[in-house]
């Protein structure tokens, strides 16, 4: 019985006191990524499901997303300390979702600046309390207001961050996955960190604008990159080919839902009927698909 309980209470709780070092992989010179598992945030994974990592310059380090809970943030910090002696000058949040921001607190110290889309703070203000209230029930973590850390530096359109011998180009995107998506381009290695603008394997989740997202993807697929890092899934080297499944899924939502609206169908009809051919193609389909259709329908019915 005791073993069962320990197993249920998950590796995370057991390992916490040992000072866990997050597993990371160097995907390009100086770019380190921890690849999250495609799981629903729960009491076992404590919301630690997203890709997070860091980029090392000659002068300092930029963290990109901090994980789904404070402990994951701490274990990422340990991984950084093990990799380099350089200080952390920036923590960049790619967007507001809890699996990307709830490790922020591990990095809050003098000398480290938080960076985000200019609409990130507003999204944090509007959603933060809800995320905190749900955290205990959903991921088994008691969180509070101190865990919501808005950016010190806001990106209006683009911003160059100098890590010493290495410049990161940050781009604030128009509403797509959320209304506060920020991507990071490393010129040195031609690597684009896209956050949740890009999903592989894990069903893309729509929390912004379907039309806006498809428009951003059209822009992005015209460009070439040596590597692209998604918010969920493996790092890819075949851009834009690896974007195809996501484009197909989102594109189908757009055409099918438009058709239903034109035919006088209601939102409940679309939720039950649209997009089920993709069920076998994506993980967490059952968890997120209906939400995607709901959000897309509400957006598209205002088209003229």
């Amino acid at each position: 019985m005791r073993y069962l309980i320990i197993a249920i209470s998950s590796f995370f709780c057991i390992e916490t006191h040992a000072g866990v070092v997050l597993s990371i992989e160097q995907v390009a010179d100086g770019i380190y990524v921890h690849q999250g598992k495609h799981e629903w945030p729960d009491h076992k994974n404590h919301g630690a499901i997203a890709n997070i990592g860091f980029i090392v310059g000659e002068r300092c380090v930029a963290v990109i997303d901090t994980g789904g809970n404070p402990e994951e943030g701490k274990s990422l910090k340990r991984a950084i300390a093990k990799t380099t002696g350089k200080p952390i000058c920036y923590v960049i949040n790619t967007h507001v979702h809890p699996d990307h921001i709830f490790g922020n607190i591990a990095f809050k110290e003098p000398g480290t600046q938080f960076v985000g889309h200019h609409k990130l703070a507003r999204a944090m203000a509007a959603r933060g309390q809800f995320y905190i209230d749900k955290a205990e029930d959903q991921i088994g973590m008691a969180l509070s207001a101190e865990h919501i850390i808005p950016p010190d530096i806001e990106v209006e359109k683009t911003l160059l961050l100098d890590l010493g011998g290495r410049e990161l180009l940050l781009t604030a995107h128009p509403t797509a996955h959320t209304d506060n998506d920020l991507s990071i381009y490393d010129q040195k290695t031609d690597t684009l960190w896209l956050g949740d603008l890009f999903f592989i394997g894990h069903l893309p989740t729509l929390d912004g604008s379907l039309k806006g997202w498809l428009a951003e993807l059209m822009e992005l697929e015209r460009k070439s990159f040596k590597q692209v890092i998604p918010g969920h899934g493996p790092v890819v080297t075949d851009w834009p080919k690896s974007l195809e499944p996501q484009k197909r899924y989102l594109g189908t939502l757009l055409t099918e839902i438009r058709k239903m609206i034109r035919n006088g169908k209601f939102i409940e009809d679309a939720i039950e009927q649209v997009g089920y051919e993709f069920k076998g193609e994506w993980l967490l389909f059952d968890e997120f698909h209906k939400k995607n259709v709901t959000a897309a329908f509400a957006e598209l019915e205002w088209e003229d």
Binding site: D99, K119, A126, Y131, T175, W302
Partner: peptide
């Protein structure tokens, strides 16, 4: 049953909604 996940009980695109307000 509340679903949880990453969404919240507010609108996703406040600025788009503000622009159309009253339509």
């Amino acid at each position: 049953k509340a679903s949880g996940g990453c969404s919240a009980p507010i609108g996703a695109d406040l600025d788009a909604a503000m622009k159309r307000l009253g339509k």
